[in-house]
Structures are given as structure tokens and as C-alpha cells.
């Protein structure tokens, strides 16, 4: 992913793990479990949550009320994870997620944040000129849509529940989920129906 770990970094990490074990704060198994669940997390989880919300109004209500409980229902372990808030896009209202202070991101359901999300440029511009940022992404909002930038500054993590695109009537959950990209889950993009499918 990045430069290989240096021997001194590894030595420091080993000392830290040894100290945490000695103090009974964490076990080797817990570290391994967390690594596994972190590696398992990917935007496909968030995409499935969105697709299901488009199809099942009851589940949608749960998702908006308590995102972590909804994720648990889909088999995602949220133990130890921050509470998950879900931002509902509506006609006339589009959400864009940023963390101006650091890089808070709903990792439990989206996996690792992309590097641009952590960049100084995105963090400073999304909150100040969100329309310019979306334009550079090629994201075109419907006319008269207001933007609500959600600056993730504290204990919650936020994901966007985008609106279901037109032309997807009768689609299965799998097919809908395939439309929901990582970028759409933080609001820099919108779910798009591929031209071929739209022409059907």
C-alpha cells in the first residue's frame, strides 16, 4: 500500500504490542480479529446497505435511526466501532461528507478511506467550495439542489444514503448495489445507471 515498514518501526510496534499484552489491555487474538474485520470491510457493505434501503422501507427507517444496528443486522460487527450516522439525500438536498480535522471515515462499512479523502486539499475545499469540488468530480446535481456538507468532527461516523436513480424499477438488490460506488457513499458522486442498462 505504501513504503515498506522500516525495521525500527516494526521494533517499536512489537514493543507497543508487548506492553499492551503485559498490561492486559489487548490480546494477540483481539488484534488479529480487528485486523481481519478491518480488511474485510469494503464499500460493498455500504452499497448493500443502500440498495436494501431502496427496496425495504422498514429497514430504511432502521438505517436512518441507528446505522450501527442496521449494519449489525447485515452481519457487520460494529463492536468497538463508533456510532454510524446515515445522511438521507432527498429531492433538493445532497450530502457531502468530509473530516476537516483529520480523516474520520465510516471504516466499518466502507473500509479504508481513499487517499484523496485524507488529503489537505479535499479537507479544506469540501467545506468551503463544495460545488467546485463536485464539479471537478464531474458530479452534476439536479437543479435547485442544496448541498449540506457534513464535517465529521467528533464521535460519529457518517455515510450518505443517496437517492435511487430513475430507470431502476424492478431491479434486484444485487443489481442496485452495483450502482453504489465508494464515492457515492460519501457524496462526491451520484449512483449512475450505465447507458447500456438505461437503453434497455
Amino acid at each position: 500500500m505504501s513504503a515498506p515498514a522500516r525495521p525500527e518501526s516494526i521494533a517499536r510496534l512489537e514493543k507497543l504490542v508487548a506492553a499492551l499484552k503485559a498490561k492486559g489491555i489487548v490480546t494477540e487474538q483481539e488484534i488479529a480479529d480487528r485486523q481481519a474485520s478491518t480488511d474485510r470491510a469494503s464499500p460493498e457493505i455500504g452499497a448493500r446497505m443502500v440498495a436494501r434501503a431502496w427496496l425495504d422501507p422498514e429497514w430504511r427507517a432502521l438505517l436512518l435511526r441507528d446505522g450501527a444496528a442496521a449494519a449489525e443486522q447485515m452481519g457487520v460487527s460494529m463492536a468497538g466501532a463508533p456510532p454510524l450516522g446515515v445522511l438521507e439525500d432527498k429531492p433538493g438536498l445532497h450530502h457531502l461528507v468530509v473530516c476537516t480535522l483529520c480523516s474520520c471515515y465510516p471504516r466499518a462499512v466502507l473500509g479504508y478511506p481513499p487517499s484523496w479523502y485524507k488529503s489537505f486539499e479535499y479537507r479544506s475545499r469540501a467545506v468551503r467550495e463544495p460545488r467546485a469540488v463536485l464539479a471537478e468530480w464531474g458530479t452534476v446535481l439536479p437543479p435547485d439542489t442544496k448541498i449540506r456538507v457534513v464535517d465529521s468532527t467528533a464521535d460519529y461516523r457518517w455515510m450518505v444514503l443517496p437517492m435511487r436513480p430513475a430507470g431502476t424499477e424492478g431491479w434486484s438488490e444485487d443489481r442496485l448495489a452495483a450502482l453504489v460506488t465508494r464515492d457515492a457513499l460519501v457524496g462526491v458522486a451520484l449512483p449512475q445507471v450505465p447507458l447500456a442498462a438505461a437503453a434497455e
Binding site: 460545488r131 442544496k146 456538507v149 457534513v150 464535517d151 468532527t153 467528533a154
Partner: peptide, 27 residues
């Protein structure tokens, strides 16, 4: 106690689009 607080966006930066907002967690 942590709140979700909504701000009008243009007055913060003296630029932007009327009606755009910023929603932030504040203690």
C-alpha cells in the same frame, strides 16, 4: 453532550450558494 449543529454556509466564507449548509458535531 454532543450536538449536530447546522450552519448556513455562505456567511462563514463570504462566498458560496444561498441555501447550502454545513452540519457539524459540536460538544
Amino acid at each position: 453532550v454532543l450536538y449536530h449543529v447546522l450552519f448556513d454556509q455562505p456567511p462563514i466564507w463570504h462566498e458560496g450558494t444561498e441555501g447550502d449548509t454545513v452540519l457539524v458535531e459540536i460538544f
